[in-house]
Design a binder for these strands. Structure first.
Ligand SMILES: Nc1ncnc2c1ncn2[C@H]1C[C@H](O)[C@@H](COP(=O)(O)OP(=O)(O)OP(=O)(O)O)O1
Ligand SMILES: [Mn+2]
Ligand SMILES: [Mn+2]
Length: 594
DNA sequence: CATTAGGGAGCG
DNA sequence: CGCTCCCTA
C-alpha cells in the first residue's frame, strides 16, 4: 500500500465537556454554556465553551464572571469535585461511549485525546469501492471542501455536486477515495449522534496532519475534505502555528529562522536548509509535509498509557505542613487508585511504575519514580509522601515543610498485561532472566507491541551523530559542522516524526549561570532589544536564533554554488538551542505568580 | 491564581 | 532506564 494513498479521518467532538453536561441536563440545550473548574475564584476557569456562547466572544480560559459580562445568560456547569479536587471521570466515561461506537465500526482507531480519534479508512474505502455505490449529494449533507468557503447551503450543494460528479466520472485526481471516506464518516457521525447523543466534526484527508487541520475548517456538526490539490493554496494561507506540532517553540523557530508567516512559504527552501535549521528529522518531516506527504501511521492504541491525578496549590493555598501534604497525597492517591482498579478489571493489566511530580516554591519541578507492587491507596500515598519528604529542608520532627509546595501529581504507568497470550509469552522469552524486578524491559516490549515501530532505521546513524561535547552557545555551529567532515554519511531520509527541540543542558546552563552577559556574547552586531540585524540579509533576527540563521546562510551559499555535498549538511546535526529568554521569562513569571 | 490531564522525544 | 522538556486537549 502506498502511504500517500491512505484515507485518514480525524473526528473531534464539538465543545465536548459542554455536550456531556447538556446530555445530563437537556434543558440547557441551545443555550450559551460553559464548563468551569473551581467556581470559588471568580467563577472558575472555563475549560469548554459551546458555540452559542462563542458568538458572544466567550473563550476557553476566561473566568466564569468574565463570561457572564459578555453574555448575561451564560450558564456555567461545574466540574465535579471529589475530596476537594476536580474529577474528570464524567468526561472520560462519555469519551468511552464515543470510542465504543468507533471501535465497533472500524478496525484502526487511535485515541488521540479525550475527544478525538484518528481513523485509517484505507481498507474500508477499498471494500466500499467494490459495491459501486451511486452516491448523491444527499449522502453528504454536512460535507464541505477545504478549498471552498461557501456562504449558503445552496452554494455548498452546488459546489459539492460539481466535485462529486467530477470524481465519480473521472478520478484523475484520485479524489474518489476521499469521497468514499467522507461517506463513511457521514455515516459514523450519525451513528455517534444516535448512540451517544453527541455531535462531532471531522476532517478527511490523506494524512493525519491534514485531517486534523481541516477538521477545524467547518465546525460544529460538519465535516471537511482536504484534497491533495488543496495543499499549495491552503498552506499559503495557513499560519505556521496551526500545524500540529508547530504550535510552540518549534513553530516559533520556523517563523524566526526562515522569516515566514505561513507554512507554504517554506516551499522555496531546500531539504538541506530545512534540516540545517530544524535538525535532520524535523527538517525532513517539514519538507515532506509541505508537499502533502506525512507518513505517521494511525496507531491502534485505545488504552491510556498513564493514569494520573494532579493539583495546583497556587499562592496562599500552598502546602506548607506535612499534615496538609499527607492529606493531599491521600486524595490524589485515591483518585488514581480508583481509576487503576477499574482499568485492571476492564483491561487485564497492571501499572508497574508510580511517578511523583511536584513543584516547589523554589520553582523547581521534581519528578521521581518508584515501583508499584500492589494497588493500594495507602501505599500510593505513603510512597508519594516519602518522596516528597526528601525535599523538605526543615527538621524531620517539625510539621513545617519548606520550601512550600505548589503542585503535586501522581502518575501510574508502565502497564504490564496480566494475561499470557502466546505472543506476549514469546516476547518475554527473550529476556526472561530478569523479570521480578519491575524492570522495564518487559514494559518496553509492552509499548512496542501496541505501537507501530515498523521500520526503525535512523537509530544507528543517530547514535553516531550524537554530539558528545557540550558546546557553548556561542557561534558554535560553524565550528561543529567542520568537525563533522569525516563522518560517514548517507542517512536515509525516512524520519517522519516531527517534534521537539530541546536542550536541557543549555537551558540549565542559562538558568543557573547567566545573566545577560552570556547571551549578549552571541551577537555579532547591534543589540536592539532582543533583535540584531544580520549582516548578510539585513533582517532582524532574535539573538538566540542567530547561530542557526548563520547556518541558514551557509546552507544557502552552498546551495547556490549548486554543488551537492549533501552529505555534509545533512549529517550535521544542529545542536538545538533554546529560546533562553522565554525560559527565563516563564521562570520568573511563574515564580512571581505562585 | 488557568487547571488537569495526557503523549512523546532526547539526554546522559 | 529515569528524568527533563515539549506539545496538545
Ligand atoms: N486547556 C485545557 N485544560 C483543560 N481541559 C481542556 C483544555 N482544553 C480542552 N480541554 C477539554 C475540554 C474540551 O471540551 C475537551 C476537548 O477539547 P477541544 O476539542 O480542544 O475543544 P472542544 O471540544 O471543547 O471544542 P471544539 O468544538 O472546538 O472541539 O477537552
Ligand atoms: Mn473538541
Ligand atoms: Mn479535541
Amino acid at each position: 500500500m502506498n502511504i500517500d494513498h491512505r484515507v485518514i479521518a480525524l473526528i473531534d467532538m464539538d465543545c465536548f465537556y459542554v455536550q456531556v453536561e447538556q446530555r445530563l441536563q437537556p434543558e440547557f440545550l441551545g443555550k450559551p454554556c460553559g464548563v468551569s473548574q473551581y467556581y470559588t475564584w471568580k467563577g472558575g476557569g472555563l475549560i469548554a465553551v459551546n458555540y452559542e456562547a462563542r458568538d458572544f466572544g466567550v473563550k476557553r480560559g476566561m473566568r466564569g464572571e468574565q463570561a457572564k459580562e459578555l453574555c448575561p445568560d451564560f450558564h456555567i456547569f461545574h466540574v465535579q469535585e471529589v475530596n476537594g479536587k476536580a474529577n474528570l471521570n464524567r468526561y472520560r466515561d462519555a469519551s468511552a461511549d464515543v470510542f465504543r461506537v468507533l471501535n465497533a465500526n472500524f478496525k484502526l482507531v487511535e485515541k488521540a485525546s479525550i475527544d478525538e480519534a484518528y481513523i485509517d479508512l484505507t481498507e474500508d474505502v477499498q471494500k466500499l469501492k467494490d459495491k459501486k455505490l451511486q452516491l448523491t449529494i444527499n449522502d453528504f449533507s454536512t460535507t464541505h471542501l477545504a478549498g471552498f468557503t461557501t456562504k449558503t447551503e445552496d452554494e455548498r450543494i452546488e459546489i459539492l455536486n460539481k466535485w462529486l460528479n467530477d470524481c465519480q466520472l473521472d478520478d484523475e485526481k484520485r479524489n474518489y477515495d476521499l469521497l468514499l471516506g467522507a461517506y463513511l464518516i457521514e455515516q459514523i457521525r450519525k451513528k455517534i449522534k444516535d448512540q451517544t447523543g453527541f455531535f462531532c466534526s471531522a476532517g478527511i484527508a490523506r494524512n493525519k496532519i491534514l485531517a486534523k487541520l481541516c477538521c477545524g475548517f467547518n465546525k460544529p456538526k460538519k465535516q471537511t475534505i482536504f484534497t491533495q490539490s488543496d495543499i499549495d493554496h491552503i498552506f499559503d494561507k495557513t499560519p505556521v502555528q496551526k500545524i500540529q506540532g508547530l504550535g510552540g517553540k518549534a513553530g516559533e523557530r520556523v517563523v524566526e529562522l526562515f522569516q515566514v508567516e505561513y507554512i507554504g512559504q517554506l516551499r522555496k527552501y531546500s531539504l538541506d536548509m530545512l534540516q540545517t535549521s530544524m535538525g535532520e528529522k524535523d527538517g525532513c518531516w517539514l519538507f515532506n509535509l509541505i508537499r502533502g506527504i506525512e507518513t505517521t501511521p494511525v496507531s491502534n492504541r485505545n488504552l491510556y498509557k498513564s493514569i494520573s491525578a494532579s493539583k495546583n496549590f497556587p499562592g496562599k493555598t500552598c502546602l506548607d505542613t506535612i499534615d496538609k501534604i499527607r492529606t493531599w497525597c491521600y486524595n490524589l492517591a485515591e483518585d488514581v487508585f480508583n481509576r487503576l482498579e477499574k482499568d485492571r478489571a476492564e483491561n487485564k493489566r497492571r501499572a508497574k511504575l508510580l511517578t511523583v511530580i511536584c513543584t516547589l516554591a523554589t520553582n523547581e519541578t521534581i519528578t521521581r519514580s518508584c515501583p508499584i507492587n500492589e494497588y493500594s491507596i495507602d501505599r500510593f500515598a505513603n510512597d508519594t509522601l516519602r518522596i516528597l519528604k526528601q525535599y523538605n529542608k526543615n527538621s524531620l520532627t517539625s510539621n513545617i515543610y519548606t520550601p512550600v509546595i505548589h503542585h503535586i501529581g501522581i502518575s501510574a504507568g508502565k502497564f504490564l498485561d496480566n494475561i499470557n497470550t502466546k505472543s506476549i509469552a514469546d516476547l518475554f522469552s527473550k529476556q526472561t532472566t530478569k523479570i521480578e524486578t519491575i524492570t522495564s524491559t518487559e514494559n518496553i516490549i509492552n509499548c512496542q507491541e501496541e505501537e507501530e515501530e515498523e521500520e526503525d532505521n535512523n537509530t544507528e546513524e543517530n547514535i553516531l551523530e550524537k554530539p558528545t561535547t557540550t558546546t557553548l552557545p556561542i557561534q558554535g555551529d560553524f565550528f561543529r559542522k567542520f568537525q563533522k567532515f569525516d563522518e560517514q554519511t548517507k542517512i536515509q531520509l525516512k524520519s517522519e516524526n516531527k517534534t521537539t527541540t530541546s536542550s536541557s543542558s543549555i537551558t540549565s546552563f542559562f538558568s543557573r549561570y547567566t545573566s545577560n552577559e552570556n547571551i549578549l556574547n552571541c551577537s555579532p552586531n547591534k543589540i536592539d532589544d532582543h533583535y540584531i540585524t544580520c549582516s548578510k540579509c539585513h533582517k532582524s533576527i532574535l539573538i538566540w536564533n542567530m547561530p542557526e540563521h548563520e547556518d541558514f546562510h551557509y546552507a544557502h551559499e552552498l546551495q547556490i554554488e549548486e554543488n551537492k555535498t549533501n552529505s555534509i549538511i545533512k549529517s550535521s546535526k544542529t545542536i538545538k538551542r533554546k529560546n533562553t529568554n522565554q525560559t527565563l521569562d516563564s521562570f520568573i513569571n511563574k515564580k512571581s505568580k505562585m
